[in-house]
């Protein structure tokens, strides 16, 4: 075993940054799936947000306006999904895949002429003395605002789902829409709201790519990040805390792979590129074996609801 000479502070910092878009999109999808809806169009909503975000940020000069419009862009595409699956009862898997196809094309049209133009980017909060803590300080307390927004969102989603009445209703809708309907809860409205939230979060995640992480636009730039977010939701067993861990794992594996290479540690690249997926499968299996009695997926995940049926 060669001594691995890594800059751990920088590595931790990079894990936080790399995992942020995964985290934002996965938290959105987590709420969607908790409401019993499977939206495979995360990639499409994400890249639409990425395009909308950078176009607006460049035009207005304000990255915050960009983030707002990134969220709106993802939300808009989410509403298309909601209209089709909730209003018109279309199949969720096919509609989600269609959303991704449409999003990839639509975003490229939207951001034509913005290729490679640097975007105005955002700073971070001044966390004062925390930054001076050795090793951890510069890694954890000198990041941009959205990194902290992601962490807050994880907390917020947890509080919402498990500590509010509305969150309870949302979970009830996902676990048994017929029972929830019988109790007088508005199944469809709840789901549409969840999908809209999921779209906005995916859009924000896309905005993070174009406004912070890269930060510029190129066609097809999400390159599969939306699919990873979907994997993370399941990795996390539909729980915000574990989704956060999952985002760190995926971000960490990607960041570590590149850093090992950069540190001249000989690594089998293909094996490392596929390792996060293999790890997730292993974790998935472990979760499901431990909970033989049913698994953690919301019981109505992906099933259509029709009132009165």
């Amino acid at each position: 075993m060669p001594v691995i000479d890594l800059n751990w502070t920088a590595f931790l910092a990079s894990v936080l940054v790399v995992s942020t878009p995964f985290l934002l999109a996965a938290l959105g999808e987590l709420v969607v799936e908790r409401a019993g809806v499977l939206n495979l169009g995360v990639e499409g909503m994400m890249i639409t947000g990425a395009a909308a975000g950078i176009v607006v940020a460049i035009e207005t000069g304000s990255p915050w306006a960009g983030f707002l419009c990134a969220a709106l862009g993802g939300l808009g595409l989410g509403l298309v999904f909601a209209l089709l699956t909730q209003g018109l009862q279309s199949n969720q898997v096919a509609t989600g895949l269609g959303l991704t196809l449409f999003g990839l094309g639509f975003s490229a049209l939207l951001a034509q002429g913005y290729v490679g133009v640097p975007a105005p980017t955002i700073g971070g909060p001044d966390l004062g003395p925390l930054r001076d803590v050795p090793i951890l300080g510069p890694a954890l307390f000198a990041r941009d605002w959205v990194v902290y927004l992601g962490l807050l969102a994880a907390l917020g989603v947890w509080l919402y789902l498990f500590r509010t009445r509305s969150g309870l209703i949302l979970r009830a809708v996902g676990e048994g829409h017929d029972a929830a309907h019988a109790l007088g809860y508005r199944v469809r409205a709840t789901r549409v709201a969840a999908i809209a939230f999921g779209g906005a979060m995916a859009g924000l995640a896309g905005g993070y790519l174009t406004l912070v992480r890269v930060p510029s636009w190129t066609d097809g730039m999400t390159a599969g990040a939306g699919w990873i977010a979907l994997a993370i939701v399941v990795f996390g067993g539909w729980r915000p805390g574990r989704v956060l861990l999952g985002a760190w794992l995926f971000g960490g594996a990607q960041a570590l792979q590149l850093r090992l290479q950069a540190a001249q540690v000989p690594v089998p690249v293909e094996l490392l590129s596929m390792s996060p997926y293999l790890i997730t499968i292993a974790v998935l299996v472990a979760i499901s074996v431990r909970r033989r009695a049913g698994g953690a997926a919301p019981a109505c995940l992906g099933q259509p609801f029709r009132a009165g049926a």
């Binding site: 895949l97 196809l101 449409f102 999003g103 639509f106 490229a108 066609d219």
Partner: peptide, 19 residues
């Protein structure tokens, strides 16, 4: 542009699923 073709394919799918 290819992007417009992809968007058109997406719309075709949306409409078929929708109607």
């Amino acid at each position: 542009p290819l992007a417009a073709i992809q968007a058109l394919q997406g719309m075709l799918l949306f409409f078929l699923l929708g109607v």
